[in-house]
């Protein structure tokens, strides 16, 4: 009995530092975010106001704009990322191990850089001047220079393009790891039936990769919901007429520039619910998963 107690004591000691920090700086803050979202918290003071913050958000055109931009950005970027990752991984798959290693590294290298730094480069590429690189590329095709991030019509497109034009290296690595462990038998059977490479890819590889696809879908979507640095840097935090404003950008400015912590917390709760909804969808689809 004493020995068991001592052993448990050690177990709790091992998890204590992490768990205590986790409770104080993650678990309680999540709860606190919900509590704050029901308060009129400002720089000083605040009281319980029920769902008033959420009513305010529902009626606020800027928040609706932020919500719409975030969803549009996420839908386009995630669709592009999944497609690109799948295609690139499929192209890498038949190559030798050394080529595979080389390409995985090549596609991962751009991703070790910070979002700030990457956004600064894209801001430079999409600047409205004739010497902007994006405008030079357009010029090659005989198209007049665009205002890009300087225009309320084109700013969001520039932000989305900047994200789409990067090969998602993490997705490539995960897809190619998953492809390496697919069963050979199905392919052999298909070959006996005379199936071509593209047919095998579409009817065998893509369906079998469903678990990886779902995982990436969730992770990339939740990451895309959090888009902030790109907007903060490329368009000075929202662009002309809030053309590029996103939820996180609005949380940041509402809380830390205008001191309306309760209202910003309500936005954070909306973001939380969006993330949980995506994760739940994944969980439910995984349960009806293909077995092989």
């Amino acid at each position: 009995m004493g020995a068991a107690l001592r052993r448990h004591g050690w177990s709790y000691l091992f998890v204590l530092p992490t768990f205590a920090l986790f409770v104080v700086f993650t678990l309680l803050p999540v709860v606190q975010a919900f509590v704050l979202s029901l308060q009129s918290a400002r720089i000083v003071g605040g009281e319980f106001i029920g769902l008033q913050n959420f009513v305010t958000l529902a009626e606020d055109p800027v928040f609706r704009q932020a919500l719409g931009n975030t969803v549009l950005y996420s839908a386009v970027v995630v669709a592009a990322q999944l497609t690109l990752a799948l295609i690139v991984a499929s192209l890498i798959q038949p190559l030798g191990p050394r080529s595979q290693t080389f390409y995985r590294a090549l596609f991962y290298l751009p991703l070790v850089n910070s979002a700030i730094l990457v956004a600064m480069v894209w801001r430079w590429i999409f600047n409205a001047n004739p010497y902007g690189l994006a405008n030079t590329v357009l010029g090659v095709f005989g198209i007049q220079p665009l205002l890009w991030i300087g225009s309320s019509d084109q700013a969001l497109a520039a932000v989305i393009l900047s994200a789409v034009l990067t090969i998602p290296g993490g997705g490539v690595v995960l897809y190619s790891a998953a492809m390496g462990s697919l069963p050979r038998e199905l392919y052999e059977a298909a070959e006996v039936e005379g199936a071509g490479a593209l047919t095998k890819w579409w009817y065998i590889t893509v369906p079998l990769l469903k678990p990886t696809t779902l995982y990436l879908l969730v992770v990339y979507t939740i990451l895309a919901f959090q888009v902030f640095e790109r907007v903060y840097v490329m368009t000075n935090g929202g662009g002309p007429n809030n053309a590029t404003i996103t939820i996180v950008q609005l949380i940041y400015s509402t809380a830390f520039q205008f001191g309306r912590y309760g209202l910003a917390s309500a936005m954070a709760v909306v973001l939380f619910i969006m993330a949980v909804a995506v994760a739940v969808v994944q969980f439910r689809s995984l349960r009806s998963d293909v077995e092989y």
């Binding site: 700086f25 993650t26 309680l28 803050p29 999540v30 606190q32 975010a33 704050l36 969730v218 939740i222 919901f225 959090q226 902030f228 996180v248 949380i251 940041y252 809380a255 912590y261 910003a264 917390s265 954070a268 709760v269 973001l271 939380f272 993330a275 949980v276 994760a279």
Partner: peptide, 11 residues
């Protein structure tokens, strides 16, 4: 899967 920005204000 909780976005880090959710805990930003409480922290």
């Amino acid at each position: 899967t909780v976005p880090a920005q959710v805990t930003l204000i409480p922290v």
